[in-house]
Structures are given as C-alpha cells and as structure tokens.
Design a protein around this nucleic acid. Structure first.
Lengths: 359, 359
DNA sequence: TGGTCTAATTCAATCCGTTTTATAGGGAGG
DNA sequence: CCTCCCTATAAAACGGATTGAATTAGACCA
C-alpha cells in the first residue's frame, strides 16, 4: 500500500512497528510544516491562528496516523496534568461508589481524569498515596479520607496542593469541605423516634476522630436534652470503625451493660445492620423490641430483611460538589475556604416502630 | 532562619512562594553536585554508584526541601508512566468494588497507579476513555467493559496498548482474559435445582452481546439437555442489561408468557433480585412458589429479605489476577495470549427450596 | 618519588513531546 | 516603497534520565 517509503517515513514505519507512539513531529513532518503549527491547529483555542485549509489537512493526517496528544509532555510543559487525585477510606463501603460517580461525571465533562486510591482509614497510608499523587503532578486532591486532625492534609497545605474534603471535615477548616449537616440528621432521627413514643434511646457512635462520628455524637447529646429526654451516658457506646465489625463489637458492649433501651441511633448503616444482627442473636427483634435507625442510606437497604429506617444523604451530589469545588479552587486559589453543607433527609422504613406499651 | 539567600536560592525561594515544585536540580544545586548524581542517589537500583555518605546527604536535603519526583518528566523520558488504566462498565454494580480492590492492591505493591473510568456499558464511551488513557501514556489497560465483539479493544490492539479483560471475554481471544467458568456455574445452579426436584426451570439471561450473558445462556441450554430436562424456549427471556431495570422488564415478559415454572436461574444477582420483586407483585412467593438463583454473590446478599442462593465468584482474586496479568504482559509482550479461568461455587441460601408436591 | 593504569565518581550534554515566545516571511494596502 | 497584519517558523524551555567523556583517587610498579 505504501508506494515510496523513504527518509523519515521509513524511520517512522520502523518506529511504529516497534510500538512507538505517533508524535506531533510525525504529523508535522508528513505535511512539511512545523510542530508548532500542528500544535496550534489541534488546540481549539489557538486554531484560529492557522488557515482553515491547513487546519483541515492537519486534522486529517493526525486522524490518519492515529495521533493522540502525549499528556505527559503537555503536563511537563504546562505544569497541569489535568488530573485530580481522589482518596477514599474504604472501597468496600457502599457509600463511596455514588460519590465517586458524581466526581467522575463532572471531571469527565471538564476533561480532567481522576486517580483513585484508598487508604483503609489510615492517615499514614493516605499520606503515602498523596505523595504518589503529588509526584504525578495532580492538579488537586479530593479527600474523603480526612480525620478531624490529619497530618496528611496538613501535608497538602504545606505543599500547596489544592484540596477539598468530602463527607469528612477537619476541625481546623483549613480546606474547602463538602459536609453533611449531622446535627440536622440526628435531630431528624430523634424526632422520628420520639414521635413513636421512644424515650430510652441508645447511640452507637462511630469513631470520634472522624468528624461524622464526633458530630453525630455531640448532636445526639445535645438533641436528647433539647427534646427533654434524660441523657444516660451508659446508653452511648463507640464503634472503632464505621463498618460491621466495629458495629458488632459496640452493640455487644451496649447489651452487656444491661441497661434497657427501646431504640438505637447508629453511627451509620453498616453499624445499624450489625446492631440488628446482634440484637436478634440476643433474642430482641427489630422493630418489635427495639427500633434502629441508620445513617447514609446505602444502596439496596430497602430490600434488606429489615428494611432500615435511615438518614439519607445526597451522595452523588456530594461527589459533584466536591469535584466542582476543587475545579473552582484551581481557578481561584486565593478565595476564602468554605464549607458546603448538605441537608439530610429521613427515610422511614421498617426498622422503627411505635414503642410497646409495656416500655 | 535563612542566613544568606543569594543566587539560585533567592530564585528558588521566590519560585516556592509562587507554588513551584522542588526539582532534582534544586537539591543538586543546594549540595553543589550534578543532577545526575542526585538522580542516581535517589534511584534504588543506581544508588550503589554513589558513595553512601553522599547518598545520605542527598536524601536528607531532598527530604528537607520536600522534593518529590516528577513522574511526568520521568514518563516523558523513559516512556513509562507507571500507570494502568482500568475501565468498568458500571460503578453502581456492587460486583466491581472488590475487583477494583484486588487490582489496587497489586498495582500498589508494584508502585503502579490506576486510572479508573466507567463507560456505562457503552463501547463508544469505553473507546473515548481508552483514548484519554492512551494520551496519558498508560502502560496497560484492564478492561472489564469488553463486549464479545468490541471495537474499543480492537483499537487497543491496533495501537499496541497492552490489555487484559476481567470478567468479560472476547470471542476472538485476542487479549489475555480473566474469566469465570460460566458453564460450571450454570451446572452448579441447575444441579442444585434438580436435586430439589425442580424440572420446569426458566432462565432470565443477561445481554447476549456480553460474554457472561451469552455463555450462561448457552450453558443453560446445554445443561438442561444434559440433565435430561425438556428445554422450553418460551421459558428463556433476555434482559437488556445486567441490572434491576433490565431484570424487571425481562421478568415481566417471562410472566406474561403464561407458561408455568417452578424455578428461575437469573443472569446475575441484580436480575435475580428484580425477578423476586416482580414475582411477589404477581403473588408468587420465593422460595415457596418459585425458587430463584442469582450469579456473582454481591455483598450483603445474606442480609436481604430473601437471602439469595447464588453462584459465587472470587471477585477480589479476579482483580488480583487481572493486575498480575497486565504486569506480566508488560514484561513479556510477546508471550502467547491466555485465558485464566476462575471456578465458581454454589452458595445456598433461602431463595431456593424443594419444589412443591403439586407441581 | 614519580609515573601509569584502572576503577570509581562526577560532569555536561542530549533527549523525551509539547507549548510558547520571539521572529521571519509574504501579501495587501497606502 | 514602506507599513502593517496575518501566518508560519525557529528555538527555547519544562524536569528528569541517560550516557559518553572527564575527573579524581587509588593502587601498583619501577
């Protein structure tokens, strides 16, 4: 098919056979123009500097040769890798996929790409991942891994890596944050329970070093008083992680204290699910004997054996907001830091019921 | 703290204030050595060429200045970005997080990083994502998005982008593939159902353009005959996607045909779940009236209202295998293509029961 | 002691694929 | 003929890896 393959063309064919990529230079040579001309012709913003005819030629040849821009070279030259790092504490927690989806959707639209890592809820691991991402010149970071005090995000600040958190907040408010109004959520839960006649309400809290755990705990104590209920510290236990193992241990701890209660507000859905299992093993049915409320509204909850009443949060929207926030911060590095707060919603299902007369 | 900030140092301070990154050159200048010395000192493989004392100095200063390697520059020079692209059809399908976790774990250990994208089960979207990844110089691709015939993976082959598929297979076997032994899975399911006395068994198949859908369908027809059961084509319907919507439509179609059946094998768990809902709405209880088997063993299935009997697949292991396969292929580009097949397992729960006498 | 040879380090220059600044060419208009 | 404008070019980065050449140091021998 190739009639005369001489000079650079020969060399190029050889290169392509060896798996080399087609470069800007290749398409420039093919047309006998300068690389800068090609660069401009292929850049929508600079295209106007080149005659339409030449642009058309260049686009045709580029297509024909299968040219794709080398983003590494672009990044090296311009300092922008068009990449956003995303760090997630736990891949297995079903809360994160929707957040991820929200993030991906907006990044995609802006021709950014995410690099995703998970850190198993360890600050050290998060820091290691952040350094890897830094070395890849990420333009910014979305952290849903942050603790209330967190040296990994301190590192981002020190290195001037633009960052936002999502679903987690720093006590210091040193970065943009997409957060949930946890106090409102707890108030919703408590108000629902109170309306069902519950008064002896327990709380299985999440880790206190994580903003959601801490804020929900604080809100619980606060709102119990606001609702005029007596606050019994013995009805509050702490799970050491927002997962089923943590929930199981904590629920057993609660039961072992021997204090009676008719309802429990769990730190999140996974803890709530574990709690229901523990209660059942102890011969307590949910919701007949005790009502349980979760938090987050993870997927498929409505199809569970005991469809869980929970506090729903706009997960995908949070992802969208996080991505928009980081892009916004890139455009406007000096803007004041802000918290964007999302309102939760009560989703009433089958795990809560009117308190029994006898209680 | 800085005593005399003159020459390069002044310039550097200025640069850092402007948010510039610390470069190899910066640490070289600080010590008055050549960049190549620093490069070698920081490269584990070449470190031996430099005196231990100097290495120590360099490491100290690099740490002090907060130097991190610019992977973009490295990639540009060496042609390797230490990045693997991963394309997933659907972020919301709970099958993928464990696969992703397996992939991440091995890539991490080899200091590779994944770029993750999803394609909503569209080949065109997958192709667009692949081109984006190509432009980012990914060293290889893991595709769990592939169809039986798929121009996006044809493109990878044409562009000499090393690729492997996971959970999906091409009819052509043109790339390495991590697949499930679907015939074995269907055999397991059917054998279980037969042992419970079922003879009139329906199949809600997944999309036929996807290997899992097609192979399970083929296996179903084959095994029905092997088990000596009469194969009624009217008891086979096709869902147009491996999700709940697809399952709902297909299950309604099956019901509308008016043929009686006592069990159904679904193309995957999501379809099975949708099927159970549809059956219930039609007044048919699972498993009392009809037994249902899923495929994939997605998380939390044991806690569902009707704990689903399903065919389990080693999701995380598949991720591990996929990552190892692509890394292996990078080392050894000329090796023959191979299929790695994973064996499924029957997980018996509550959605299957002995067929009623009357049937 | 001086000279030679070798091994161990370090240096300087080049390259990777792009973008971009400054510059040159060429045609139109005055 | 001289400007001015419109295109296109040439050349210099970007940050780090590579490598042949140069320097140094050390060892050995006469």
């Amino acid at each position: 098919m190739i009639i005369s393959a001489s000079g650079w063309m020969k060399k190029r064919i050889e290169a392509v056979i060896n798996g080399k990529k087609v470069t800007l230079r290749d398409v420039a040579n093919r047309l006998g123009v300068n690389t800068s001309t090609v660069s401009r012709a292929l850049n929508p913003k600079l295209k106007s500097m080149i005659t339409a005819e030449k642009v058309a030629q260049i686009e045709k040849i580029a297509e024909e040769l299968g040219y794709v821009q080398n983003v590494m070279a672009y990044a090296l030259k311009t300092g922008s890798s068009q990449t956003i790092g995303v760090i997630i504490p736990d891949l297995m927690n079903p809360v994160y996929p929707p957040i991820l989806k929200g993030i991906l959707n907006v990044l995609n639209a802006e021709s950014y790409i995410p690099i995703i890592a998970y850190c198993e809820n360890s600050i050290d691991m998060a820091l290691a991942e952040i350094k890897k991402m830094e070395s890849r010149q990420v333009d910014g970071l979305i952290l849903s891994s942050a603790f209330r005090e967190d040296k990994s995000v301190e590192y981002c600040i020190k290195q001037k890596l633009p960052s936002v958190t999502v679903g987690r907040a720093l006590d210091s408010h040193k970065v943009d944050q997409i957060v949930i109004d946890n106090a409102a959520g707890i108030k919703l839960a408590l108000s629902h329970l109170v309306s069902l006649g519950h008064r002896k309400i327990a709380h299985i809290s999440g880790p206190q070093l994580i903003s959601d755990g801490y804020q929900r705990y604080r809100a619980f104590k606060q709102e119990m008083i606001t609702f005029g209920l007596s606050l019994d510290e013995e009805l509050i236990v702490f799970a050491d992680a927002f997962n089923e193992e943590g929930g199981t241990v904590a629920a057993n701890e609660l039961l072992s204290r021997g204090k009676s209660f008719t309802a429990v507000i769990a730190g999140n859905d996974l803890i709530a699910l574990a709690c229901i299992s523990v209660l059942e093993k102890a011969g307590l049915a949910c919701p007949q004997d005790v009502s349980v409320i979760g938090y987050n509204n993870m997927p498929y909850l409505d199809q569970f054996k005991t469809p869980l009443t929970t506090i729903g949060i706009p997960r995908m929207e949070m992802g969208v907001m996080a991505a928009e926030a980081i892009l916004e911060r890139l455009k406007n590095p000096e803007a004041p830091m802000k918290d964007l707060v999302c309102q939760p919603v009560l989703l009433q299902r089958k795990s809560t019921a009117v308190v029994r007369k006898s209680d």
